[in-house]
């Protein structure tokens, strides 16, 4: 075989993408750049604030230091209230999320209507922020921790329910088939065939959500839904920066602690 024939049969040039694919890729890049430029130009950002931003940041920092530590005694009750709001909201979620997940999973829902209902609950819950739920529940229950508990639960159902529903859709159908074959009722199939299989996901997601809820409950007070947020909001409004720093450090401590507990607890789930 001549050299030319060899090159004909085994070419020396190989390209991962066709010219058309390359063109499409560059069009995507151009599109992303366009979106970024358009967003910035449309937002009308007051650039002159950037000029002394570093000075302002340093100034704020010096006003926060040193923190006024005796204030810590005053924030212990609202801090504990924040923990209670997060925990009770999460407990509510445990009881509500699993039924909603059963409705939302294709393989366990009863019919198209129940599936749609389940998905509707999930989407509604997830599309509204916890603080916005807080505004609604403050209007219903009045200001205070009860509104906070409900807003935490309302937001968590969507998060936990969606993840459990996804887990239910991925379970081993064989085990469910076997339980069905024993003559078990629909509820028994869910209890013995489905629940044990998604238990790790339920526990893991609930603990993770509890940890997120603690962080979210710290700002619920901004809209009057109880917890440490109320104190934080008033300290900021009074320019009491030495108090603000105490609150921020305390929140940081609680969040780190809850995250540590959450990681430890989730690692034990098998």
């Amino acid at each position: 075989m001549s050299q030319a024939d060899l090159h004909e049969k085994f070419p020396q040039i190989w390209k991962r993408f066709t010219p058309k694919e390359t063109l499409i890729r560059y069009l995507w890049y151009a599109g992303i750049v366009f979106m970024a430029v358009w967003s910035v130009s449309n937002l009308d950002i007051p650039w002159f604030y950037f000029l002394d931003a570093h000075v302002q940041a340093a100034d704020l920092f010096t006003r926060m230091i040193p923190p006024y530590w005796p204030f810590f005694i005053d924030i212990i009750p609202p801090l504990v209230e924040t923990l209670h709001i997060a925990t009770l909201g999460t407990v509510f979620t445990i009881f509500l999320a699993f039924p909603v997940a059963i409705l939302s999973a294709r393989n366990t829902t009863f019919n198209k209507t129940t599936w749609f209902l389940g998905r509707l609950i999930l989407v509604t819950s997830r599309s509204v922020n916890t603080v916005v739920w807080g505004l609604l529940f403050v209007a219903i229950f009045g200001p205070g921790p009860v509104a906070g508990i409900f807003s935490v639960a309302a937001r968590s159902i969507g998060f936990v329910g969606k993840l459990i529903a996804e887990a239910i859709e991925e379970i081993d159908v064989g085990a469910v088939e076997a339980i069905e074959a024993t003559g078990a009722s629909k509820l028994q199939i869910l209890l013995i065939g489905v629940l044990p299989q998604v238990m790790p996901v339920i526990l893991g997601t609930i603990i993770y959500r509890w940890d997120i809820n603690i962080r979210e409950s710290t700002v619920l007070g901004f809209v009057g839904a109880g917890g440490i947020g109320i104190i934080l909001y008033s300290s900021i409004n009074l320019f009491a920066w030495h108090e603000v720093s105490v609150i921020l450090v305390s929140i940081f401590g609680v969040v780190v602690l809850s995250e540590y507990l959450s990681i430890k607890a989730r690692a034990r789930i098998t």
Binding site: A175, E177, A178, I179, P196
Partner: peptide, 22 residues
């Protein structure tokens, strides 16, 4: 069944007793 189809996270006893669910 071919793939045994046990509920993995339950104990052997729980799996055997599930035969009585009906």
């Amino acid at each position: 069944f071919q793939e045994y189809n046990l509920v993995d996270r339950l104990t052997v006893m729980e799996n055997v007793l599930s035969g009585r669910l009906g």
